[in-house]
Nucleic acid binder design. Structure first.
Length: 496
RNA sequence: GGCGACGUAGCCAAGUGGUAAGGCAGAGGUCUGCAAAACCUUUAUGCGCCGGUUCGAAUCCGGCCGUCGCCUCCA
């Protein structure tokens, strides 16, 4: 059983084999930090987080590099736009680097709550200006770039394979009505590797061509090379950046350094909101914070981070994900179902007084079956919906077992819990190590207080004083504590 | 104008040549003092429409209709 991935370079599914056996180098285009993370970021980084986690599950040692774009990304069309960071700095009346710092922190804060593991290296574009200048010089030396009025442009016509990733024909690009001809470009298709700064530009550096700043595509080219070497295994990112960004990264790297850039291109599809494109320019963006707080026109309620994560993983990463309130609330209930079983298993495990390490023979076949199906799904280009389906089938089997009123050995419960932790936790990142809203994981005092009420209620029920027992249950429910009577006693959980 | 993706039950979503996974919602049932949770049964003779290839197609080919996206900043 081997991992197969869809490679946008070949537009085919291919067997994944890293260049150096046992090691994987992965670069993913990171955010431009001039605003809060939105659900498009969430989809992209959850997607590659799962890729990262699954590669490690398979035993690879992964180096995951994801840049922070803090300079060079321009607002608007053409070449006259303002730097995004610079503009936001002007709006908020602070230094550009304050913008970068604060939105970088927000970015990691949001990704942390979504349980996205941090990359191994988060290099900043502004910290790699010398390398980007060297890239421009190398391209000039090789004849694939030219300097003009303090700008350095990559010459697209000089590089015949330009367009190979996005499958655009270079000749067609000329007809694009939107491509404005900058006065100092030789060809409208050329793009800037280095840009001359106007006097008002807040972020600028000295260069052989005067004061300026790097072009947007340059950072990824140099930082991927610096930290992963060429070629490296996986380049990830969002499909909307396939052109011109990814295309230009490849061209610059191959033209400057020779040889291949990235070996496998994995690109996630985009996000829509109620069926239409989400974009900052559309005015309908949904930030991660808005999804978590529910403070958004389109949302009826807040959604937990794990619900958002589960929802994103419930469709394949190369499909578009349509965020609707209805779909999210369905996901919330589905996720609750999964988590409820995990919580129950952990509570039963905590209640076991003697340890019996024997694993039920019949159930161990179920465990093996789950693992097989799960791995088959994930090996099939990270098919998380299929993997989740396997997990839900397993879930049903577990529910049947723990409700069978037959004794279940602690060894079996432990094996079940470990499986949830490994597949649902380590790989998919949707099953927390501690379920804070579940009795078993609750803080001591909270659990003790609820246990006192449960004891009182149990006594009332024994006396058939249902008025009292129901009053306790109803009032606890109003406070957000749900009681469930099981044959072996009452358990509780917090209803979020 | 160029390029591309998608259209599967009320909703979300896998499946890409062998006779429709999974989740949500709905219906009936079991369990329960009543609930909750869970479990069982049930919910697409059919996968946008029309043709074609094939023993066999949701899956391949052609045409049509529809939706969305990229080509311009965006993950």
């Amino acid at each position: 059983m081997t991992l197969r991935v869809y490679n946008y370079l070949s537009r085919q599914e291919e067997t994944f084999e890293p260049l150096h056996p046992g090691f994987v180098g992965m670069y993913v285009c990171g955010p431009t930090v001039y605003g809060d993370a939105h659900i498009g970021h969430a989809k992209a980084y959850i997607t590659f987080d799962v890729v990262h986690r699954y590669l490690e599950y398979l035993g690879y040692r992964v180096r995951y590099v994801q840049n922070i774009t803090d300079v060079g990304h321009l607002v608007g069309d053409g070449d006259e736009g303002e730097d995004k960071i610079g503009r936001q700095a002007r709006v908020e009346r602070v230094e550009p680097m304050e913008i970068v710092e604060s939105y970088t922190r927000n970015y990691f804060r949001d990704m942390d709550v979504l349980n996205v593991r941090r990359p191994d290296i988060s290099p900043r574009a502004s910290g790699h200006v010398p390398e980007q200048i060297e890239l421009a010089q190398e391209l000039l030396t090789k004849g694939h770039a030219y300097a003009s009025n303090g700008n350095v442009y990559f010459s697209v016509p000089s590089w015949p394979t330009y367009g190979k990733l996005s499958r655009r024909k270079v000749d067609d690009l000329e007809e694009g009505a939107r491509l404005e001809v900058a006065g100092d470009k030789r060809d409208p298709r050329d793009f800037a590797v280095w840009r001359a700064a106007t006097s008002g530009h807040l972020m600028q550096w000295n260069s052989p061509w005067g004061k300026g700043f790097p072009g947007w595509h340059a950072e990824c080219t140099v930082m991927a090379r610096k930290y992963l070497g060429l070629p490296f295994d996986i380049h990830g990112g969002g499909l909307e950046n396939i052109f011109p960004h990814n295309e230009s990264e490849i061209a610059q790297s191959e033209a400057a350094y020779g040889g291949a850039f990235a070996r496998y291109w994995l690109l996630n599809n985009m996000v829509t909101i109620d069926g239409t494109k989400m974009g900052k320019s559309q005015g309908n963006s949904l930030t991660v914070q808005q999804a978590l707080t529910g403070k958004h026109d389109r949302l009826s309620q807040p959604y937990s981070p794990m619900t958002v994560r589960y929802f994103i993983l419930s469709s394949h990463y190369r499909q578009t994900t349509d965020f609707t309130d209805e779909a999210l609330s369905a996901a919330a209930r589905g996720y609750e179902r999964l988590l409820g079983t995990v919580g129950l298993v952990r509570q039963m495990l905590a209640k076991q007084d003697s340890h019996n390490s024997t694993i039920d023979a019949q159930f161990s076949a179920t465990l093996v079956d789950l693992k097989t199906r799960f791995e088959e799904a994930m090996n099939n280009d990270f098919n998380t919906p299929q993997a989740l389906a396997a997990l839900f089938d397993f879930n049903r089997a577990v529910n049947t077992l723990v409700n069978s009123q037959q004794p279940v050995s602690s060894g079996t419960l432990e094996a079940i819990d470990n499986t949830y932790r490994q597949l649902g936790g380590d790989v998919l990142g949707i099953i927390p190590a501690e379920i804070s809203t579940q009795g078993a994981g609750a803080a001591g005092l909270e659990d003790e207080l609820v246990q006192i009420l449960i004891t009182l209620r149990t006594a009332a029920r024994k006396n058939k004083d249902y008025a009292t027992s129901d009053a306790i249950r109803d009032q606890l429910a109003a406070a957000g504590v749900i009681l469930e009577d099981r044959p072996d006693g009452t358990v509780w959980k917090i209803n979020r």
